[in-house]
Design a protein around this nucleic acid. Structure first.
Length: 383
DNA sequence: TCTGGGGTCCTAGGACCC
DNA sequence: TCTGGGGTCCTAGGACCC
């Protein structure tokens, strides 16, 4: 999709036609999406909102409507599945479609691409761009060049002709840091990387990344379209973090926030029927330096109280003397199905404990809403 | 009043085991 | 009488993606 969050936000707002629009959070938020008028002023995704407003003071700023975006995303993916069952959603606004089996039925790649675009536009009133190639990653790179509202086809025989003039930063997996490293080697274009011995690239980037980038420079990506409907990779971790509106140095505020985040994470675990063994605390200081501390528990848990207790112990273990914190986060890794966890009661431990209490809270929440029952610490004193 | 939130994967060192 | 080799797990940091 083109400028997805912004397109969704404006499709029922004719009053915003011809105006620059930015979707993003307030305060310390970043730009989630900006329409092409705002981009004309230099606004980009992931840019701090403060900078975006400065670049484009006339822009209409809209907070994201995640529920609506998810709904539109689901509808678009359903349209894709009418063309082929081989649809891999990469994110809410992007998917790989393997149409190699649809040519006889639906025509040339260009025709399929245009059909997809018109069906999305007719049904959802938003535009999208399509890249077509023999491999997913090259198709993805082509789709970038198709934006906005276009199609770029890269025939098999023209892959290197398409790739080699591009900046190395356009390769999937090459971000700012890797781009700098390649520049230091004197490699600026994809073609430069392609014509450098793979060992040289690997020495600079490490074995795995180096090999991948070098292969990709020749259009070899090793990826296949993997529809989510089949058995997809199990989740490996789940987490939540929060950037404070203002930097915080009160350990009590931190402890409360860690409880809120732990509850969010373990709530997700419980509804997914998962539990995890490793709890990771993330701290970002006022100067943006970020550290993590983790602890692996004897057995996997989905219990809020245990995750919070662990996160708090990790925090106290840092021995921070009222350092100013910008962000705290909690993540649980090493996920396994809860059915595989066989809890060993400790000597003196009650048979029914927090796990049962929290499950009861989940049921109350499902029935009466999120405000029905909460830890006292998370009840705002305004009541 | 620069820099969100949710993820994945890789690297590297050390402990530990056989 | 100067210290192997292979494997797994844990921890911490960092890069990248959307």
């Amino acid at each position: 999709m083109d400028a997805f969050y912004a397109s969704v936000a404006t499709r029922d707002r004719p009053d915003l036609d011809g105006r620059p629009v930015i979707v993003g959070g307030g305060g310390r938020g970043v730009v989630l999406s900006a329409n092409y008028l705002a981009r004309g002023s230099g606004v980009r995704s992931a840019m701090p909102m403060t900078r975006a407003r400065r670049l484009c003071p006339d822009a209409v700023v809209i907070p994201p409507d995640f529920a609506l975006v998810e709904q539109v995303s689901g509808s678009v993916m359903a349209l894709f599945r009418q063309v082929t069952p081989l649809v891999e959603a990469v994110s809410l606004d992007e998917a790989f479609l393997d149409v190699s089996g649809a040519a006889r039925r639906l025509g040339t790649p260009e025709e399929i691409a245009e059909r997809l675009r018109s069906v999305v536009h007719d049904e959802q009133r938003i535009t999208c761009s399509v890249g077509v190639a023999a491999t997913p990653v090259v198709a993805k790179m082509a789709s970038r060049h198709a934006k906005p509202d276009g199609v770029v086809v890269v025939p098999s025989g023209e892959v290197t002709a398409f790739l080699h003039p591009l900046d190395v930063g356009e390769l999937w997996g090459v971000g700012e840091r890797t781009r700098e490293q390649l520049h230091r080697l004197g490699l600026f274009t994809v073609g430069d990387v392609a014509h450098t011995p793979v060992q040289t690239v690997q020495r600079a980037l490490g074995g795995v990344l180096g090999a991948r980038v070098h292969a990709l420079a020749w259009g070899v990506d090793g990826r296949v379209v993997t529809p989510q409907s089949g058995p997809h990779a199990p989740e490996r971790s789940t987490g939540a973090d929060h950037t404070f509106d203002r930097d915080v140095d009160d350990p009590d505020v931190v402890a409360t926030e860690l409880l809120r985040l732990s509850a969010r994470v373990t709530g997700r675990l419980r509804s997914a029927g998962l539990a995890g063994r490793t709890v990771t605390l993330r701290i970002r200081f006022a100067d943006f330096t970020t550290i993590t501390r983790s602890r692996t528990l004897p057995e996997a848990t989905d219990v809020t109280v245990e995750v919070h207790r662990t996160a708090l112990a990790l925090f106290r273990g840092l021995g921070l003397q009222r350092a100013r914190l910008r962000l705290v986060g909690v993540r649980v890794e090493g996920l396994v199905p809860r059915s595989q966890v066989h809890h060993q009661l400790q000597l003196g431990e009650r048979e029914h404990g927090w796990s049962e209490a929290e499950r009861a809270m989940d049921r109350a929440t499902r029935r009466f809403g999120a405000s029905a029952v909460r830890p006292a610490r998370l009840v705002r004193h305004t009541g």
